[in-house]
Design a binder for these strands. Structure first.
Lengths: 141, 141
DNA sequence: ATACCCCCTCAAGCCACTTGAGGTTCAAGC
DNA sequence: GCTTGAACCTCAAGTGGCTTGAGGGGGTAT
């Protein structure tokens, strides 16, 4: 199959596939006489796996590690589990940050609504709140 | 005061301040004879405001908008509130994504622990789960 | 032969900084 | 007055994970 079909089947885009090939995450595709890349069902499976890992938030380097684990009969399952566990910890940390952030922004909005809605912007409570900096420290998005 | 002091007082770094100046988020600093940037307390206030906005997750362009609102006597407070509300919606969306993600990854880990811990990596339940792609669609981090 | 879509490569752009190289300024101590 | 060393300067490139754009070739249906 050609690259556009692979992209559809794996739920991603053509440039992304070429990008993955370029950084060595997917092995170089076989080419037709005209230079066009040709893929098979195994490529669909691998690309889906990569996209699933990415959707789970694994960075590319960890996807690389996971990919190689899927082929390594000498590796232990605990390596995969440990990667997943570390991901889980990271996700939970981010979740806590984001919850605190949600609380803070909601407070920003509701204070403005109850004390100054419709007034002159320069006097808005949001600016006072932002200058007092009650925002949680967080890894900037 | 010099740039290093400003960085400390605003809880950020020297290169970040220069970067903000470069992109026009902070106005160009006055220079000493030797070329070194000099700041005053108003600069501390503005930089703190910028960092607070960033900590709240506002992208640079929105920080720019918020900064100009702080000075614009003809603007309405609702403009600031609307920006904050849109931010709140975005944060809540991300929060929902992250919660779903947490559930999925936790399932990944616990299935592995109960069915295959210590086995050969190639047979790990994590890979089966990832290939079945139960990950939520999400804006990739 | 023509139209048209899909494909190709290479390069640059995005966001918000961070890092590095290589050089200058300034305050303190001798 | 001289040396040291921290703090400063500029300019360029790197980070992650793609996306976008320019400019051209391949494949197939009419």
């Amino acid at each position: 199959m050609r690259i556009g079909i692979l992209a559809d089947r794996a739920g991603t885009t053509v440039p992304t596939i070429r990008y993955y090939e370029q950084i060595g995450l997917l092995r170089p595709a076989i080419r037709q006489s005209g230079g066009q890349r040709i893929y098979d069902n195994e490529d669909v499976r691998r690309l889906r796996f990569v996209r699933a890992c990415r959707a789970f938030g694994f960075p590319i380097d960890e996807v690389r590690a996971l990919l190689s684990l899927t082929d390594d009969r000498s590796a232990s399952c605990t390596e995969a589990r440990d990667l997943a566990e570390r991901r889980l910890v990271a996700v939970r940390r981010k979740l806590a940050e984001l919850k605190a952030l949600e609380t803070s922004i909601a407070a920003l909005v509701s204070t403005c609504n109850s004390t100054c809605a419709g007034g002159v912007a320069t006097d808005c409570s949001i600016f006072e709140d932002l200058e007092r900096r009650e925002a949680p420290n967080r890894s900037l998005v």
